Simulated assay, not measured.
Amino acid sequence: MKQLLWLSLGCFCGCLGVGCASTSATAATSVHSVAVEPATITKPPKGFARAVALWPNGAPGALGDGEGDIPKIYVYPAPGPGIHSAVIVIPGGGYVHLAIEKEGGEEARWLNAHGVTAFVLEYRLGPRYHFPSPMLDGARAMRYVRSHAAELGVARDKIGLWGFSAGGHLASYLAAVNDNGTSGAEDPIDRVSDRPDFAIVSYGRYTLDDSIPRKTNMEGLLGDHPTKAMLDSISVVKRVTKNTSPCFIFSTTADQTVNPMNATAFYDALKQADVPVELHIFELGQHGTGMAQGMKGMSELAIYPTLVANWMEMHGWMSQE
């Protein structure tokens, strides 16, 4: 029965445009691991106005109705009148937990201070959930914000993503693999595009090519024994097209967890596809720097939020102060 559930979910993810080149293979791995694993519970970030369940009647492929089974966004409205741009912040954590304050709440409050409405995504995690559940959750968050743009006071064509580590991988995947929505879908949210207008990605893994050294095979997303086809299906550099969203890439040479060659590989793929892209790789800084403020001996990293702001201002996604 669970096998059928995951196969059906694979077809569903194809309709949503999140890609499922190896969903059935993933299903075989997932079925054996998710049945006995409890859901991962994440403490909410600080300072949000309200939380919104992305599927009030249950997410596709949900294995329960507890907190860890309910993908949601935490809403941080920008102050002041008028229509604002928006950013959905996607925390990292290896697809098994979420650094939701350091790589979510902090950024959301910073965006608010710069006139941008923010949302922090809480997506489903392994080992209970594997591909494509996080991708479905991220795509749904994009569709939700765009379909509720008037209610949320945001511009439909100025909605971006900002992801860190695993969240950077997820944001880059959504930037590359998306669709225009399903015309005539019963759920009006599914009728709108899930393509982000831009993506900011920090120290994420964008390729699983053997030419770039790595310590893991993203088991949190794919399970313990992913096949090459499964690895290829989530390698973002293989999914880039001319329709991929403009990207801002941040990494550090000293990152010992995710090789910064991932950042250059993603940059190269975007450049070859003629997608607008900006790349910054700093010499110092371990993995997981977040907003990179106040880091002892690494004062140069503090410029990171300013670089993000400058890039967003240049493209009209943040108002110049």
Rank of each mutant, 00 (worst) to 15 (best):
6 W>T: 09
6 W>P: 00
6 W>E: 14
7 L>F: 13
8 S>Y: 05
9 L>Y: 03
11 C>D: 12
11 C>Y: 12
14 G>Q: 15
14 G>K: 15
17 G>E: 11
18 V>R: 06
24 S>F: 09
24 S>H: 06
25 A>T: 12
26 T>E: 11
28 A>P: 00
29 T>A: 12
31 V>E: 02
33 S>T: 15
34 V>C: 13
36 V>D: 14
36 V>R: 14
37 E>N: 08
37 E>L: 02
38 P>A: 01
39 A>L: 04
40 T>P: 00
40 T>I: 02
41 I>E: 10
42 T>R: 10
43 K>G: 03
43 K>Q: 15
45 P>K: 08
45 P>M: 10
46 K>Q: 09
46 K>V: 10
48 F>M: 08
48 F>N: 08
49 A>E: 14
50 R>N: 08
50 R>S: 12
50 R>K: 12
52 V>T: 12
52 V>F: 07
53 A>E: 13
53 A>R: 12
54 L>P: 08
56 P>V: 05
56 P>R: 03
58 G>Y: 10
60 P>I: 03
60 P>R: 00
62 A>I: 07
62 A>D: 00
62 A>C: 11
62 A>L: 04
64 G>W: 07
64 G>T: 14
64 G>E: 11
69 D>P: 01
71 P>D: 08
71 P>A: 05
73 I>W: 02
73 I>T: 02
76 Y>D: 01
79 P>K: 10
79 P>M: 07
79 P>D: 15
81 P>V: 06
82 G>C: 08
84 H>M: 03
85 S>R: 06
87 V>Y: 02
87 V>H: 02
87 V>M: 13
88 I>V: 15
88 I>C: 09
89 V>F: 01
90 I>T: 11
90 I>A: 06
90 I>H: 06
91 P>V: 03
94 G>W: 00
94 G>L: 01
95 Y>E: 01
96 V>M: 11
97 H>Q: 14
97 H>R: 15
98 L>N: 06
99 A>M: 07
102 K>F: 09
102 K>W: 05
105 G>K: 11
108 A>Y: 06
109 R>P: 00
110 W>V: 04
110 W>I: 01
110 W>G: 00
111 L>N: 07
111 L>E: 04
112 N>E: 14
114 H>A: 05
115 G>P: 06
117 T>L: 00
118 A>M: 07
119 F>N: 11
122 E>V: 02
124 R>C: 00
127 P>Q: 00
130 H>A: 10
130 H>V: 00
130 H>D: 05
130 H>S: 08
131 F>I: 06
132 P>T: 13
135 M>C: 13
